[in-house]
Design a protein around this nucleic acid. Sequence first.
DNA 1: TTCGGCACTTAGGACTATCATG
DNA 2: CATGATAGTCCTAAGTGCCGAA
Length: 714
Amino acid sequence: MAKEKKDIEKEAAKEAKELRAKEAKAKKVKKEESDDEPLVKSKAKKAKKEESSDDDVPIARKVPAKKVANGKTPKAVAAAKASKAAKPLKKESSEDADEEEEEEYRWWEQQKDDDTIKWNTLEHNGVVFPPPYEPLPANVKLVYNGVPISLHPKAEEIAGFFGIMLNSTLNVENPVFQKNFFGDFREDLEETGGAKDKNGKKVDIKEFSKLDFTQIFDYYQAKSAARKARPAAEKKEDKAKVDTEMAPYQYCMWDGRKEKVGNFRVEPPSLFRGRGEHPKTGRVKKRVMPEQITINIGENAKVPEPPAGHQWKEIKHDNKATWLAMWQENINGNYKYVMLAATSAIKGQSDYKKFEKARELKKHIDRIRDDYQKDLKAELMADRQRATAVYLIDKFALRAGNEKDSENEAETVGCCSLKYEHITLRPPNTVIFDFLGKDSIRFYDEVTVDPQVFKNLKIFKKDPKKAGDDIFDRLNTTQLNKHLASYMPGLTAKVFRTYNASFTMSRLLMELKGSNATIQEKIKLYNDCNRQVAILCNHKRTVGAGHANAMEKMGDKIKGLKYQKWRLKHMMLQLDMTAKEKKSKGGDYFRLDEELDQAWIDKHQEDLVEEQRQKIVKKFQKDNEKNVAEGVKEMKQKELQERLKVADELAKKFRQENKSKKVEPEGKGITVEKLETQVEKLDQRIATMLLQAEDREGNKEVALGTSKIVSRPS
DNA sequence: TTCGGCACTTAGGACTATCATG
DNA sequence: CATGATAGTCCTAAGTGCCGAA
């Protein structure tokens, strides 16, 4: 992995270099993007990107740029629609009626002269609260020091939060998470009368490590399994019911248009899953009451009813805001908003604006780059730091780096908040970044920089400075953005990320060839571009514990196929094969792959036998269930034993093979030719699996997910 | 100039539906 | 036809950046 990563980094660096060279004029933006907005957002976006590149070419023609953009965009949207339509043909007609009006609103063509007013009328039905807590059945208990205990439902609910996530080892095994959880749990225990054993005797819960949540975990697991196992018809029915119940909340009326609402559900109580070394991770996130929720709605609209016996905190009619409801969460005091979905006009417009801004940057980027190049030598330390920071943001797609409250948040940084220890200087001009960025994702990169930048960083790290000190001690994001805004209204640090990502995506797409590729291949190519941008933007995911496991499993599968291949070949030997034929295959043909040794084979054979056994048992149970359902008599255990003999046979066969080193041909009418075909098929499967394994390994730490918001409601 | 309040975007991971395939 | 892999959705944490008051 480390290696993998380096490769990625190298590639990114290389990419950057190429870019630089290519675009002499636009000097470089490079990286980033991906994240930002992601790639995702869609085809419309993609199209936009392409566009921007076209009109990039004639940078000069700025005057009509706006028009062009507006003219093109709808095209892009139409294209997106068309491509969508291509797949799910069926729906189209039925949906149309419904969608027509929405389609009619061409938000991308609406230029608002005053975009501080977000709406004139707004109607909606408020939020959906999570269901109340359902106490555990009497036989499911939290166990303390071996003793099953009873809790007040309130405390039990909290225990349940922990129990239900027992398989999330990342959290559950984190000592801070445990400590925070335990602290809150104990507090609640105290308030609710503590824990009692089955005789009603009080049990003092003193040590986290003595708590055993497995009963709770198993209970919830079983519950979810049962849910999953519902018959298809029932599932469908349940879904229809939920859909009907949710329907009123799904949409709102925004200036008289029907618009989709995003997160209309109030966040349920749970344990706070702060990322990285968040000091508060594991604390109890409390149930949100109506009394905490502010509703924002049109003055003349009907205010949604709060749940019986409750009140809203406040009703607002703020048409300068886009949110429909809002509350503050109890752990960090963060604001939570209910807003429209990404497919809504308001979000689309703002997205559009963002990309327009990035396109606008193109017109100024040369001047900005010239300036910071000069300012790298500025007399004034503040100016020099600022120029250096802009350089880093531009070249390496760093985020702005606002200040954080180190007491209450994970310690992560961006450009302006880089600390002494996050940068290592290696003469003559290599800089090694190593820090945790947003979401505590590690940013590691070794890059070569402009000699003056190297010099500057050295100065910024000079003497009295030590680990823990800011590199840019004369700079913060506000100053930086103020400076950037002097080039172009609205220009801020984050625009560079959008710009670089879009620029890169656009270039990669233009470089694609393969007009004769199949749709699938095209998708793959598109995804490849997407991935490159993600890499550039340091869009990573943490390699899950499951990964190594999955890889091993794949490896095992491949070995299994190889073993089967070997068996097939040896079956040939048992058939009539002329000496000549044998010889023409060569001795190697029949040799066992060196990855397979006897120990592995023994184990593998055992696994195969066991697998078969399981299958038989399962089938037996299923058949019996069916019998019961149909009122037929159940089969006896004896029948099962009978059926299991097949597995015993297999084991026996393997034993014999091991001893005699010969493999009896399987299947009637088997011939050498048929075996050869089978071998070929296996070879193919092995090849695809190897490819898949490679792909998986290569992708393990690249996050592509952010990318696909589809551009249309359904 | 700093600080907290606020609104909005960006992002990874859990969860679910769908697809491939053996 | 089940089963596991993959794609897509949901959820919500963690950023950015603006504003006004102290």
